[in-house]
Amino acid sequence: MNFTEAFLRSIPIFVGINYQSMAKKKGSATYSIPDFSQSPRIDKVGVEERVSRFQKRSIKNEAKMQGLRMALNMIDLTTLEGKDTPGKVKQMCFKAAHLHDVHPGLPTVAAVCVYPSMVATAKKEVEGTGIKVASVSTAFPSGQAPLEVKLIDTKFAVDAGADEIDMVISRGRFLSGEYNFVFDEIATIKEACGKARLKVILETGELVTLDNVRRASDIAMYAGADFIKTSTGKIQPAATMQVTYTMLEAIRDFKLKTGIQVGMKPAGGISNSKLALHNLVMVNEVLGSDWLSNEWFRFGASSLANDVLMQIMKLETGVYQSSDYFSID
């Protein structure tokens, strides 16, 4: 990009013009890019009160079973470790399709989520199951690499067959107030994704305030995110209800303004059924049933699946379960 183009793109309105074609592709009307420094303010105490209302919902019987099955079907079963090997990934992929075969009729998870180097392996393993392969990219988890590297990282994963790309935003740049840089980076990666759906990880634990979470959500969505995602799982705190709630409200406002539906993926820290059900209650009441499918809502988790399975078996049998009876892969 030459100097003039770079200069123009540093002005919000021109940033928007560059990428409006992308918005149109989604079948929406054109929209103008807002001034992100003016994103809506969030009152944290009010958010906490609202969230506590979701946590007080009592989900029983058939609604609970329905919710648990939904949760299972929304999981991005994840392994993101330095010590990941094809062997580990293969085992996890098998688990993804065979959650608990002693109980037939269970759904599969939505996707497996791996590093780019593992995408090819995963793609082969889940073939024919309907399970998607998601890959983290853009120098996950820190994002501290040049754009060129991030683009190569992304293209590598897409070429290897990734259906979904989970990118990280540049938090340092965001916290320095360089919102246009963050916006451009997301839009550029979006282009590189091609047909793959783009999930944008805000890493809310590093953004700290809910005002920042809201602003980053807006930037990601206007830049073309198909999903916004809370965390990498490497930073605490991760997907708290307060953060997810703030992002859901942003998604709702974006839908109202542009007509475009964006998905949500809380990731990190949602390790048991109760938390998962609270999250589903929240999605149900803030966004409505349009979002209650794995096309629009995901849980990024590694240990959640087994806890949900144990709860489902408890409901089926009436007996409290032991982890010895549920496979760990």
Binding site: D43, K44, V45, G46, G205, V208, T209, Q236, P237
Partner: peptide, 8 residues
Amino acid sequence: HPIENIGG
């Protein structure tokens, strides 16, 4: 007035 408890 609410008091926000900022941070992690």
